[in-house]
Design a protein around this nucleic acid. Structure first.
Lengths: 346, 346
DNA sequence: ATGAAAGCGCTAACAG
DNA sequence: CTGTTAGCGCTTTCAT
């Protein structure tokens, strides 16, 4: 069946040491010997046993990626970039889906899978800064999006407050006055939604308006369905007030999926976009470009998120006792203006 | 730092054998001893070393999932389901993206990563049946979508010919006569596109019409962009003929992403959907539901694809020398009719 | 019920 | 330049 170093050595009439050298190419081997070993290698179709190597090396060459879900476009794109960037570094990625389960998130942080992985990139969802506790970990961790106040892990994220402010300001500048926010998640400790809400309010206030709680529509999860439900709730509530001006003239959704759900309802209700309702999302997923109308969105540089996160891991893994303070890396973003937020006619 | 079985044994004053028994819970241990060992375990925060276990067991508990790309909705959804179903079986999934590179696909099949994984699920893209050759593999492989004529791997797929026939027939029954097909990939050996084309032609012919090569629009990849380009090409070609009847009145796209790209162009050109153009896709991605108008699509039972693929692997992995002939598992599908293919008015 | 020890396959320190 | 061998941490057979 599968051949070991020993088998190859026997066939080539050398020691395992020599075969190992040929395989790894590290030490020098006499040309004639190398050829003989190589022939044996080929004949037996030798493949090194990864488990044995790992045991020996004390490393597995695996890194973990823990995200809430793989099927949503944002995380799919991000995971794709991380897997790709990891390949460049000869790492293999094992994926864990937490589905926003706080216990699953904590378990991963604590155990990190029993040293299955050399490092862990985790995008917390349910856990907030307070809960991201220590527990004796022995693999490096990079947090995506969430800050860890105890200073135990590097962090990579966009400036959510600023980005949300810019998105909202863009809507204000195009003449919108009743801008709804779809996406607050008061039931979670997660920082991200809170920061985007903060940026939204900041922009409103700077424009001399007063944030209207009735326009802040919470959601349970971040799928299209939640965006659709939130939009429905906003429109229904406005209709009940009997006040023609109660209806929002714009929506800032905290994710593109929410925005696409909202867009869907706007269509269903016969609201013209952007005429009667402008829509802005967040994430820059590919979907948005092909929506009708194409979706204005805040685009984080996802490639850089992947790259920087892996760089952090590499630094920690390869520089063992480095006492470098935890990094807080801010990733650039930009507002991609498309048709969904054109100047209103309503 | 990280403690070993030996450390725990020393602390508890027992042998490693006993600690191992406590950890695994396999053999029986005296209550008093167990408590003492457990205390030591907790105190040291012991985590078993996966590499050592793997080496011992001859298994890694990992399975590989090789797909063209993780960021497209279809593969994202599928990967999500597979990762989830694998967790139920205590397997961890490592993901490989082939990006449709034939060499990458072949390399994975050959080496299967040097026994990194206990099994491999691969969704070939560039390789066709002829190229899916043997090479001494020693891990079980499941092929998604593609048949392997040498009978060396199990296969899980929908009946593409039938499904495409149904989709096309649906369009014919709603009165469409010039039905374009977006998605043939003559440059690839891949079976899937070929089978869908076959089903499309079969339906056209059965309706007493003659397949029109001008309506079969090839694509290089399966992204929205390709769908948009293909739709543009079809409309432009029709416009050049100066024949009002040359324009397609329907499109069967071989994937939902292609369909969404086509939909986008229809909007941009001011074509009403489904009035002047009906659109049907394939894959049942979540996007389609929220498109405007919602997309009619062939929905494969992805959950079952994941489940059956893992079942195949489990059978092969746990029943070593089983000489069961390779399975060819056909997954059910259904046509989900939505607004994009309503009865035409044009 | 528990201890001692072999051995999974590999790498590298030591020896020649 | 190459052979011999210890040992990575774990499970499990053999012995008690």
């Amino acid at each position: 069946m599968s051949s070991r170093l020993k088998d190859v050595a026997a066939l080539a009439g050398v020691s395992t040491r020599t075969v190992s050298n040929v395989v790894s190419g590290s030490a020098s081997v006499a040309e004639e010997t190398r050829a003989r070993v190589q022939a044996a290698l080929d004949e037996l179709g030798y493949r090194p046993n990864v488990a044995a190597r790992n045991l020996r090396a004390g490393r597995t060459g695996l890194i973990g990626l823990a995200i809430p879900e793989l099927y949503s476009p944002y995380f799919g794109e991000l995971a794709s970039l991380i897997v790709h960037a990891a390949q460049d570094r000869s790492w293999t990625v094992v994926i864990d889906q937490t589905f926003g389960d706080p216990e699953a998130e904590q378990r991963l942080l604590d155990g990190a899978g029993g040293r299955l992985v050399d490092g862990l990139i985790i995008s917390p969802w349910a856990l907030g800064p307070e809960e991201l506790t220590d527990r004796s970990r022995d693999v490096p961790v990079v947090l995506l999006g969430e800050r860890q106040p105890h200073g135990l892990a590097d962090r990579v994220a966009v400036d959510n407050v600023l980005a949300a402010d810019e998105a909202t300001t863009h809507l204000l500048e195009s003449g919108r006055r009743r801008i709804a926010a779809i996406g607050p998640q008061p039931h979670l400790r997660n920082e991200t939604a809170r920061q985007r809400l903060e940026g939204y309010r900041r922009a409103i206030e700077r424009a001399g308006l007063r944030p209207d709680p009735a326009l802040e529509q919470p959601v349970t999860t971040l799928h299209r369905k939640d965006g659709a439900e939130a939009m429905t709730a906003l429109l229904d509530a406005a209709a009940r007030t009997d006040d023609a001006d109660a209806r929002p003239d714009a929506v800032f959704a905290f994710t593109d999926e929410l925005a696409l759900g909202a867009l869907h309802i706007a269509h269903a209700r016969g609201l013209s976009v952007p005429g009667e309702l402008a829509v802005v999302g967040f994430d820059g997923i590919e979907d948005g470009q092909y929506a009708n109308p194409p979706l204005t969105t805040v685009v984080p540089d996802k490639r850089q998120i992947a790259e920087r996160a892996l760089q952090c891991l590499a630094d920690r893994i390869y520089s063992p006792a480095s006492n470098v303070a935890p990094l807080d890396i801010v990733i650039p973003h930009h507002l991609e203006v498309r048709a969904s937020s054109g100047r209103g006619t309503g």
